[in-house]
Amino acid sequence: MNVHNAAQEEEIVEMSYAEAIRDALDIALTTDERVVLMGEDIGVYGGAFQVTGDLVHKHGADRVLDTPISELGGAGVAVGAAATGLRPVFEFQFSDFAMLAMEQICNQAAKMRYMLGGAVSVPLVMRFPAGSGTGAAAQHSQSLEAWLGHVPGLKVVQPSTPRDAKGMLLRALEDPDPVMVFEHKLLYKTKGMVPTGHYTTSLDKAEIRRQGTDVTIVASSVMVQRSLEAAEFLAGDGISAEVIDLRSVRPIDRHTIVESVKKTTRLICVYEGVKTLGVGAEISAMVAESEAFDFLDAPIIRLGGAEAPMPYNPDLEKAAVPQVDNIVSSASQLCRGQL
């Protein structure tokens, strides 16, 4: 069940991130009768962010199920369905609403295999439209990947490109355990080249998006694109930044990060979740504990979300999460020995 062959990978076309996810769901519904989609308004309405689109018309209302406005109930049905043989993909309208379903995610899905001595597994995929930047205010703009990343028994990923969004979703559907997929809302309309057939992308490997020698920038989700833009600016300033797309929050690809830091001697973690106790905090600690410690030539820097509820005011919302400017100035000061 590892990497499916690339036989069907005849073509590579441009798609948006949302289209790539829909393509993955379409392939899964077509090729595996155990796959069912569940979520609020994912049927005729096509999903809060139009990700499922017209899949209900193609695959029918018994494969693409509209669930009532009860995240806890819907998640419970999905967990039960997964435990008893189906391959459900549950969509939250906003990742923030996952808090209503924490019991099912953290206490049931994450622990069932362990508590039943391996007799049962929960091959569940959950999708979480996440992040700020859409003017959706404090209760609809959070980045909660660190919350779920704290729970053993879950896998937590944050694809940052259309290609990864599709490949990681198809890989998640093959996984015997619950996989939580955080999709940044600002990414849905971004475009990229995506193979049309079935392929999978591993759920535990970070990806070096740009090679560099002076500083390692580990970024996740939408911060990957911002870090790449920052790296371009920095290059003009004589600073060579290596940008790592974290991709997986649990497990974290320690090896890729540690090796990069050993090469560049400097580390910046860029993430949208609240800075304190966030994903970057974990990466910083992990590097400090690793053999890369002896290679550090500067303090480790975290650029994370503000210690505040996400503001509604668009200027404040922008200021509350790292932007390209912040990354450029931090990396530049770090490499010039000013931090």
Partner: peptide
């Protein structure tokens, strides 16, 4: 920095005698 300490040790240099150019006099690789 940890890197500077390790390099100084390997080179047999007394780090306390190295003038630091970083913030608060921190000694770096350079």
């Amino acid at each position: 920095t940890p890197l500077a300490r390790r390099m100084a040790k390997a080179a047999g240099i007394d780090i306390s005698a190295v003038a630091g150019s970083g913030p608060r006099g921190r000694v770096t690789r350079k």
